[in-house]
Design a binder for these strands. Structure first.
Lengths: 110, 110
DNA sequence: TTGACATTTATAGGATTGTTGAAATATGGA
DNA sequence: TCCATATTTCAACAATCCTATAAATGTCAA
């Protein structure tokens, strides 16, 4: 992930509705969720969810595909790890004082 | 780091000048840098750097202390690792498909 | 206490972002 | 074809953010 994308991605993550959408889509996995379901679950209007999904797409964090009448959105796992990595490597220069505490919680995980 | 802070922190990281400042302060380490030096290095005016530093402070990412005539800013390492961790744990639910590739680059580091 | 230095705060303008409701587009079924 | 469904696009408006300039604050030294 380059800096330009990262700036947009950070902006995308800085809004409550969009953060909620990202969480939903990560949980939903590769199958994704239709825009209408996302709107309903997040509690916003169709046109509002569409606006935010477009912003997330612009940041590269989600992808869209049409499935019959629905448009199904999925989280882009690669972009999300790219963003985490950008934060650790580009912003924080891989500084162990920052990166190691962040990693601690996963060292014993799967 | 709670969600409210994370939203502000993501917003703070989504602006070019502020991202530049974070990079500078991470490199500078615990000694930090005076506002004037930051402004000069980042190539912006004193009042502009002050504006952005305040935004970073609001997001909890930097701290300030006075040293004689200067005000010295430092990166808050704990907040930065908190943000990385928020991204992995809260947004991405610790999903290995996201977190493991992000970690790969550091597994052999110090 | 005056003056220079370092920084912040106030203010105002323009630019970008977010929300809403209505209209437009695309799809599939009767 | 006509209609219902699913979603996007448009337009208008409010809210927030960014920049620039000027004035205010705090610190030190003569």
């Amino acid at each position: 992930m380059d800096e330009r994308q990262a700036l947009i991605a950070f902006g995308a993550m800085s809004q409550e509705t969009r953060l909620k959408i990202v969480r939903l889509l990560v949980k939903a996995g590769p199958e994704g969720m239709a825009a209408g379901i996302i709107a309903e679950t997040a509690g916003v209007s169709a046109s509002n969810v569409s606006f935010h999904l477009k912003e997330l797409e612009r940041g590269g964090l989600v992808t869209a595909r049409r499935d019959a009448r629905s448009i199904v959105y999925s989280a882009d796992y690669q972009a999300l790890s790219g963003l985490i990595r950008f934060l650790m490597e580009d912003c924080c220069a891989g500084n162990p004082a920052i990166c190691q505490p962040a990693l601690a919680c996963r060292s014993s995980g799967s």
